[in-house]
Structures are given as structure tokens and as C-alpha cells.
């Protein structure tokens, strides 16, 4: 299986110049499949947590966005029970000029700035709108419970 030059280059660069708080390591047997970890950003209920994700580059990447899913349970209005993420750049706003690095940075930013008006997990978003303090507290508890390294 010929791996596109672009994926090889992106992988090389991710290894050579890692982004602070983010790591992405390709599987040895499938170089399109990455194990990703994102540190919860500071000043957020996810601070101190290390979240595991899986990232897969489809065949026509970079024409279609990578597929990303949280493996670690997380309490967030834009992330559902299955770990799927509601982020415009992963869907309709994807551009082939984006890359793994920028997408992971967007996800990290999403953790720092939840957007309950564009929810994926309805119950969480509801809670977030009604009782933001309580929701943030739950998120902190979940982080404590599931995302501690």
C-alpha cells in the first residue's frame, strides 16, 4: 500500500516538531491510524486531564477531513457519548489546506471554549445552558475520574 507523500510528511513533522500538549503517533501496521492524546487546556474544567483520541486518515485525505473520536469519556456539549466531535472544520468547513496538527489544535481549543449552542450531546448542552456551574463541575469530576494519566 503506497502511502501518499503528504501523509508521510505530516507524520514526520508531527514527530520532529511536536505541538505542546498534543501527541499523535501512527500505528505501525496502519500508518493512517493515529493514537492521539490531548492535554486539557488550562483555565478549563479539563485542566490536568489527558484525553485519548483516535484519528484516521481516509483514502482521499486531504480532500476529505480526518475522522477523529474521543476514546476517553468526556463531559462536553460538543462531544457525544461515543466520543464524536461537533466541529465545523471536521465537517463542512474542512479544507485540504488544513492538516492533522491544525485540527488537533482546534479540538484543544474546543475543550477550552465549549459551544452549547451548536451541540452534539443534547442532554449535556441542555445542562450546560441551564446550570453552567454544575455542568462545569461535572466536567471536572469526569476529568478527574476518566482522564487522569
Amino acid at each position: 500500500m503506497a502511502l501518499p507523500k503528504r501523509i508521510i510528511k505530516e507524520t514526520e513533522r508531527l514527530m520532529a516538531e511536536p505541538v505542546k500538549g498534543i501527541s499523535a503517533v501512527p500505528h505501525e501496521d496502519n500508518l493512517r491510524y493515529f493514537d492521539v492524546t490531548i492535554d486539557g487546556p488550562g483555565q478549563s474544567p479539563y485542566e490536568g486531564g489527558v484525553f485519548k483520541l483516535e484519528l484516521f486518515l481516509p483514502d482521499d485525505y486531504p480532500m476529505t477531513p480526518p475522522k477523529i473520536r474521543f476514546l476517553t469519556k468526556i463531559y462536553h456539549p460538543n462531544i457525544d457519548r461515543l466520543g464524536r466531535i461537533c466541529l465545523d472544520v471536521l465537517k463542512s468547513n474542512w479544507s485540504p489546506a488544513l492538516q492533522i496538527r491544525t485540527i488537533l489544535l482546534s479540538i484543544q481549543a474546543l475543550l477550552g471554549a465549549p459551544n452549547p449552542d451548536d451541540p452534539l450531546a443534547n442532554d449535556v448542552a441542555q445542562k450546560w445552558k441551564e446550570d453552567e456551574k454544575g455542568a462545569i463541575e461535572t466536567a471536572r469530576q469526569w476529568t478527574e475520574q476518566y482522564a487522569k494519566p
Binding site: 500500500m1 503506497a2 496502519n30 493512517r32 491510524y33 481516509p58 483514502d59
Partner: peptide
């Protein structure tokens, strides 16, 4: 049409990659 960077191996990679990917992800996508 296969993607630009992966013309030769696209068929085989597609089948192998789908097999390796968890189910819920696929349906969502």
C-alpha cells in the same frame, strides 16, 4: 475517482482501512 496522492494503492487501502476502523465512527461519518 481515487485521491491524488494515492492512486495505486487506494483500492487495497480502502478495504484494509475500513476493516480496521471501529463501527460507531463509520456510521457517524
Amino acid at each position: 475517482i481515487p485521491p491524488p496522492n494515492d492512486r495505486r494503492g487506494s483500492r487495497s487501502s480502502r478495504s484494509s482501512s475500513n476493516a480496521g476502523f471501529p463501527e460507531p465512527m463509520n456510521s457517524s461519518d
